[in-house]
Amino acid sequence: MRPAHHDTTTVERGSFALARCSCGWTGPARRSRERARTDARAHESAAPGEA
């Protein structure tokens, strides 16, 4: 069962950063850490079933 809320973090892999969520979602690898954080915020605010 997936959690009802989203707890996102950003993770670094070499020179890339990516967003991850407690629901299992993973964003694309980004060179910009700020863009990875933006991906995480967008995922958190998405309606259920959209992300």
Score class of each variant (00 low, 15 high):
30 R>D: 03
5 H>M: 15
25 W>Q: 11
44 E>S: 15
43 H>V: 11
31 R>Y: 09
23 C>Y: 06
15 S>Y: 01
21 C>Q: 01
16 F>C: 15
16 F>D: 15
9 T>K: 06
40 A>N: 06
50 E>Q: 07
23 C>P: 09
31 R>A: 15
26 T>P: 00
25 W>L: 15
43 H>W: 06
28 P>H: 07
37 R>C: 08
23 C>L: 05
38 T>W: 00
21 C>K: 02
46 A>M: 08
4 A>C: 07
4 A>S: 12
8 T>W: 02
1 M>H: 09
36 A>Y: 00
47 A>R: 02
20 R>M: 04
39 D>M: 01
34 E>C: 03
13 R>P: 14
24 G>F: 07
22 S>I: 03
51 A>I: 08
3 P>H: 13
40 A>G: 07
12 E>H: 15
15 S>F: 02
48 P>D: 14
17 A>Q: 01
19 A>H: 04
36 A>F: 00
21 C>P: 03
24 G>H: 01
17 A>L: 03
47 A>Q: 10
41 R>W: 01
30 R>Q: 06
13 R>D: 10
10 T>A: 13
26 T>F: 02
29 A>W: 00
6 H>R: 04
43 H>C: 06
31 R>D: 12
4 A>H: 07
36 A>W: 00
9 T>M: 10
1 M>G: 13
29 A>M: 08
44 E>H: 10
18 L>H: 14
30 R>Y: 03
45 S>M: 06
6 H>A: 06
3 P>Q: 12
10 T>E: 13
23 C>E: 13
46 A>G: 11
32 S>I: 09
46 A>N: 12
9 T>H: 14
7 D>T: 09
33 R>T: 12
12 E>F: 12
43 H>I: 05
49 G>V: 04
51 A>R: 03
19 A>N: 06
13 R>N: 12
37 R>Q: 08
7 D>M: 14
45 S>H: 10
5 H>A: 10
27 G>F: 02
13 R>T: 10
51 A>G: 11
1 M>C: 07
30 R>N: 09
24 G>E: 10
11 V>C: 15
46 A>L: 07
33 R>M: 04
50 E>A: 13
25 W>T: 09
30 R>L: 06
12 E>S: 14
45 S>A: 11
9 T>A: 11
40 A>I: 01
31 R>W: 09
51 A>T: 03
8 T>G: 11
16 F>A: 08
43 H>N: 12
6 H>V: 11
16 F>L: 13
15 S>W: 01
49 G>L: 04
35 R>C: 06
19 A>W: 00
29 A>I: 00
10 T>F: 05
47 A>C: 15
19 A>K: 00
12 E>V: 07
37 R>F: 05
5 H>Q: 14
19 A>Q: 06
10 T>I: 03
38 T>L: 00
1 M>Q: 05
11 V>S: 15
46 A>C: 14
6 H>I: 11
20 R>T: 11
27 G>C: 04
28 P>I: 03
28 P>D: 09
49 G>S: 02
37 R>I: 07
28 P>Y: 01
29 A>G: 06
21 C>H: 02
31 R>H: 14
24 G>S: 13
50 E>S: 14
11 V>Q: 13
51 A>M: 04
20 R>F: 07
3 P>S: 07
1 M>Y: 08
19 A>V: 05
20 R>L: 13
15 S>M: 04
33 R>N: 15
40 A>H: 02
16 F>I: 15
10 T>M: 05
42 A>N: 12
26 T>M: 02
9 T>R: 10
